[in-house]
């Protein structure tokens, strides 16, 4: 742990930029997302997995609507901009016409779990060979921190000011728990980018999901829990801890289904790939 940056507690000194890191498939590191946002990190796991598999020139991303949409201008990947919630169907049509291509969606929780829930369920049940990437921060970040279908009980949002109350607002949806058991789902996992170990595990999950797609095993999904300190109304440095303890409590990380087999208990992805 000594050679990686600790993100599980606030730094003792102010951050100092020592150099710039940019994934191969990124055109720039300049983006408009908030400080402390987990989405650029999540994107990095996706872009690096595409490179790992040598699919940079055989890959199409289908993008939903949310904060991450702003990241599309810096992605060096062929893209289709879909509507809020509709990316899984668009990805389906593209995959059927270009079966040799690696096709992924990038969607937020508002996009996938609210607006487009039936799309992702049907796409999974149909066993479409596409990979859906869900960036779950439990809020509508782009509108300024509103409750979504994955907001956990007790979480404060702009339209649940005293915290999500199950009796009044209903319960959050566990997306991986919902999608993993479906017959067409080959791979389902939930990662988190709240610390370096989480980022590394998430990257392995994305890669394994892509591999399942390229083998033609069926539908694959990786949910990535991302920090949204702006939408959570907490100090930036508390984001990772809040994600781990508040969101991670309900949205349990690990692999839920691999090689078409449901696991008894969510498990870390194997190290050796």
């Amino acid at each position: 742990m000594s050679d990686i940056i600790r993100t599980d507690r606030p730094p003792e000194a102010a951050a100092r930029k020592t150099g710039e890191f940019m994934p191969t498939l990124q055109l720039s590191t300049d983006h408009d997302l908030c400080p402390g946002c987990g989405e650029p990190l999540a994107l990095r796991t996706v872009l690096e997995s595409i490179v790992d598999l040598g699919m940079s020139q055989q890959c199409v991303g289908v993008i939903g609507i949310g904060c991450y949409t702003a990241l599309t201008s810096i992605m060096d990947v062929d893209l289709i901009q879909a509507l809020h919630g509709r990316a899984p169907s668009v990805a389906t049509g593209s995959k059927r016409m270009r079966p040799e291509t690696l096709i992924f969606t990038l969607q937020g929780d508002g996009d996938m779990a609210n607006e487009g829930l039936q799309e992702v369920i049907h796409t999974a049940a149909r066993g479409e060979s596409v990979t859906c990437i869900l960036l779950n921060n439990g809020v509508f970040g782009e509108t300024g921190g509103h409750m979504t279908a994955t907001t956990v009980i007790g979480q404060r949002t702009k339209n649940s000011l005293d915290g999500r109350d199950a009796a009044y607002h209903g319960h959050p949806i566990d997306m991986i728990g919902l999608l993993a058991p479906l017959g067409g789902t080959a791979y389902a996992a939930r990662g988190s980018v709240h610390d370096a170990a989480g980022v590394a595990k998430t990257r392995r999950m994305v890669r394994r999901a892509f591999e399942a797609q390229l083998r033609g095993d069926g539908f694959s999904i990786v949910e990535i829990l991302t920090m949204c300190p702006t939408g959570w109304f907490i100090p930036t440095e508390e984001g990772p801890d809040y994600l781990d303890t508040v969101m991670g409590e309900i949205h349990v990380t690990g692999e839920w289904k691999r090689d078409g087999q449901l696991l008894q208990q969510a498990a870390d992805p194997p190290e050796a790939d």
Partner: peptide, 17 residues
């Protein structure tokens, strides 16, 4: 969009905005 333009610095982006 066939995926072929990724990684070259000049990808395609079919979008309505």
């Amino acid at each position: 969009v066939d995926g072929s333009r990724g990684g070259g610095g000049d990808p395609r982006n079919l979008n309505p905005i």
